[in-house]
Amino acid sequence: MQMQPLPHILLILCSNIMLLPLVTAHHDTEKMIALFTQRIESGEASAELHYRRAIEYRILLQHPKAEADLRQALVYDENYTPAHRELAHLLAKRGEQKLAIKSARHAIRASGNLHERSGAMILLARLLAVAGQPEAALRHCLDAFELKPSGEVEWYLLHAELLDANSRPNERPEILAAGYSATHSIVLRNAWIDALLDAEKYKAALPVIHRELSSSRLKGSWRLRYARAQLGMGMTTDAGLSLALCLEELAKRIHPTRPDISLIAERGLAQALLGQIDAARSDLNRARAGGADSWMIATLERTLSDNAVKNGK
């Protein structure tokens, strides 16, 4: 076997030694924290090192330590954007919405490029929405699109949610259709169909629903959408059949003790549409307890609330 000339080997050896911290830098999380701590304590402290240790603390769910490190990172560099962004996430998680919003605003100001800036704007929009400021949230979401017109899948979803929160639900289909066209994401296509159903544009939704019903293996969510269209068009008996089939499939898919909450939300909606109000409420509560996002249970909540109004409750 022909070997490399000696100087070349020495060069590689030297570079390998230089790379040792990197080569060994794929240990477990606790060891990474120990490594960062050692470096911080030996006088290497910097915004980046504190930030990196904060990320490891966050992975271990040690949020107070993560927060302390993020704050320390900002002492070293008050414009260190990743630390502002991460701090905003942490603060929001423990319900400190105002402080989280402040951090997100810092992140926007400190952003070094358009990409970072648009991402920080979307973060701020989310935080404002949670804080009950949908108008401001929508404004910031649109600002982000100004900076990056192609957007991202999640941005279109957020935009649609914010339109709903600003009592402009009928504008959702157009935004989601544009997002689908720009990204090809099936999530946006499906959200577009849901938005069409919410806007009572059943005929526009039906071609896709029919196509998916004929080509999907598991049809529950499409049967549910079909039932919504059927009910909207006054086809109550057919809707009942669709919902029964949907529930039959969900019964096989929902784990008895540890279910996927998106399926629980679907079952709740199917039950609500069938008038099984107690069961639907129970699933709504279960989905909420499981951390379901607001979009996931919005239609179920609306259906139950409409039902309560109808029955004078």
């Binding site: 994401s185 998916e212 293996r217 998106s262």
Partner: peptide, 21 residues
């Protein structure tokens, strides 16, 4: 990426898994 059930990745996963035969 967002790993929650409401995140775009989980929503895509659910749709994809329902579709495959």
């Amino acid at each position: 990426l967002d790993r929650r059930p409401g995140g775009a990745m989980a929503r895509w996963l659910k749709a994809d898994i329902e579709k495959t035969k």
